[in-house]
């Protein structure tokens, strides 16, 4: 890289750090310090309701996690949630991005519509799907009855599997646009000569897709996979409003359990331990993400 071989005047370095100082200060104070402090709290017995019992207990909170049924169940729910949401999102986003990459009447409108779920706050998304999935008056029941798909109104959210699946569907609707836009940006960089060449070689549409589009799209697809994994893993807003984690703990993801532990039970020590497990898992994923960006050489400074 030419950057490394050129001599940098010292003035620039000083100026640059001065310019970054405000941002670094804010981030250190409000992200780095809290993260460190949260680890410290995770080593304590620290319940707001029992301030006298507060003391340092080392790794006990973490050790407790392995025999903590609520935690293990939430971890499982989160893992399955990630897989289901990710699978649906990637397939739908890929198809929608491929459609949007073509030229047709109404494309601009469809692109605007695709931004709609993205602009919607997660809480409103939860409210919206609640009215749609409602057992007595919901739009889904009304629509399916009118189409003759069901004989009577169903309570979609009362069974564990149902609640889980419909929560995942609501989440997919909300996060779809982000993946679509990343994939669409990737698609738009494919040089059309590649398709021309493939056509000259008498490659059919299917072979053009598998041999030109897919390899070219591999990198954006990986980015979508990583970012959406993180999103689904932390999913909170929609679930909180739609099911509140129920029925039972069928939709209690790790993020939801953490918030309940802290807000309802005010157990800050255990809550911080949960949070650190979430952070550790996210960190592993993001290291992969940044490594990926590096390898692809997209990281020019």
């Amino acid at each position: 890289m030419s950057v490394l071989t050129e001599r940098r005047p010292l003035g620039d370095t000083a100026k640059a750090w001065a310019l970054n100082a405000p941002a670094i200060t804010v981030i250190t104070l409000l992200v780095a310090y809290p993260i460190g402090y949260s680890f410290y709290v995770s080593l304590q017995r620290n319940n707001l309701k029992r301030p006298k019992a507060k003391r340092f207990i080392g790794l006990d909170n973490y050790k407790a996690l392995f025999s903590d049924d609520a935690f293990l169940s939430a971890l499982k729910v989160s893992a399955v949630f990630v897989v289901v949401v990710l699978g649906l999102t990637v397939v739908l986003a890929l198809i929608l991005a491929l459609v949007l990459n073509e030229r047709f009447r109404g494309r601009g409108l469809l692109l605007s519509l695709a931004l709609l779920p993205w602009a919607m706050p997660g809480v409103v998304n939860g409210l919206m799907w609640r009215t749609i999935f409602d057992a007595k008056t919901g739009a889904l029941n009304g629509l399916m009855l009118q189409l003759g798909l069901i004989d009577s109104y169903q309570a979609w959210l009362t069974s564990s599997t149902g609640a889980f699946l419909f929560t995942a569907l609501a989440q997919v609707w909300n996060t779809l646009p982000f993946s679509v836009i990343i994939l669409l940006a990737g698609l738009s960089t494919i040089p059309s000569e590649l398709y021309d060449a493939a056509t000259v070689d008498r490659a059919g549409a299917f072979r053009r897709f598998t041999q030109v589009t897919v390899p070219w799209l591999l990198h954006p697809l990986l980015i979508v996979l990583i970012l959406e994994t993180m999103n689904a893993f932390r999913a909170f807003d929609t679930i909180y409003v739609l099911t509140g984690g129920g029925p039972g703990d069928a939709t209690t993801t790790i993020a939801l359990l953490d918030v309940q532990t802290v807000l309802t039970f005010t157990d800050f020590g255990l809550g911080s331990a949960y949070a650190w497990v979430i952070t550790a898992i996210t960190l592993i994923i993001s290291v992969g993400y940044i490594g990926l960006l590096y390898r692809k050489g997209n990281f020019e400074v």
Binding site: L30, P34, V262, A275
Partner: peptide
């Protein structure tokens, strides 16, 4: 520095909420 900025974006909000609240 750029990578560090990017990394802070990856930090889940839940990880900093408790100290943030106490602060």
């Amino acid at each position: 520095l750029l990578v560090l900025y990017l990394l802070t974006r990856m930090v889940p909000g839940i990880a900093i909420i408790i100290p943030f609240y106490l602060l």
